[in-house]
Simulated assay, not measured.
Amino acid sequence: MGSWVKLPATESVELLAEAGMDLVVIDLEHSPLSIQTASTLATVALGRGIVPFVRVPDHAPSWISRCLDFGARAVVVPHVDTVDQALIARNAAQFEPRGRRGMGPTTRAGSWNLRGPQQYIDGAREVAVVVQIESAEGLAALPEMLARDAVDGVLLGAADLSMSLGVAMDDPSVSQHMLEVLSRCMDSGVPCALATGANASLVAAAAEQGYSMVVAGNDASLLGAAARAVVQGSRAT
């Protein structure tokens, strides 16, 4: 279980760690965070013993390799609609001959090359590329992605998927598509993750369904919801 991080504050990561989250997903797609700030947030996560994921803003291999170099344990790639896009993302995270990632051991991921490059090379086997399936095209391409071992994990969210399908988020067809993706992933031994609101019942239900990871809310919304509850509760009283 984790949460998106959108605020440029190390305290967000510290507070989520103190709350007992297992991971954070530092969001470079839907936030003003810079890559330098994302690097700092990842460092805090590592120091606090929780896993730093980073959602990159697009499919560019340079984003993926740079985030892995500064210590991200996984990258989340948005809007993956084709097998080729999934393969490009996967290859950007792995060195030759498994991929096309450039060597840069003088980085945090390589302990600044103070122990030699082998640790850096071996570390690539432990990182993950999680693709977001959030379109009708992505749904259609997923079976081949799984068959070709093109993804390490899949993340689902109802918002973009429903817009692509032309229906409301609460339309039953959205839930049905998501459950079909979950089933395919489970059959293939590929972890499937779900993005939800910050609601304990939703998180528990997702875990019972078989999702391996749930990203519940984000730091900004959690802060806003807590503040609003105080304001509304006190005024109502």
Rank of each mutant, 00 (worst) to 15 (best):
G2P: 09
W4Q: 00
V13S: 04
L16H: 08
A17I: 03
M21K: 01
V24R: 03
V25Q: 00
I26T: 01
D27A: 00
D27C: 00
I35F: 08
A38H: 10
A38M: 08
S39I: 03
S39A: 15
L41R: 00
L41Q: 00
G47W: 01
R48I: 02
G49D: 14
I50C: 08
D58N: 14
A72H: 01
A72T: 05
R73M: 15
V75Y: 00
T82F: 03
R90N: 05
R100V: 12
T107H: 04
G110W: 05
S111K: 05
W112S: 05
R115T: 15
G116C: 11
G116W: 07
G116M: 13
P117Q: 01
P117W: 05
Q118A: 11
Q119E: 13
I121S: 12
R125V: 09
E126C: 03
A128W: 01
V129N: 04
S135L: 04
E137Y: 04
A140M: 13
A141S: 15
L146Y: 05
L161V: 06
M163F: 15
V167R: 12
D171R: 03
P172G: 09
S175D: 15
Q176A: 11
Q176L: 09
V181T: 06
M186D: 12
D187P: 00
V190C: 14
T196R: 03
G197T: 13
A198Y: 08
A200H: 06
A206G: 04
A206S: 14
E208I: 06
V214R: 04
V214Y: 06
N218F: 09
A220M: 08
A227E: 10
V230S: 12
V231I: 08
S234A: 09
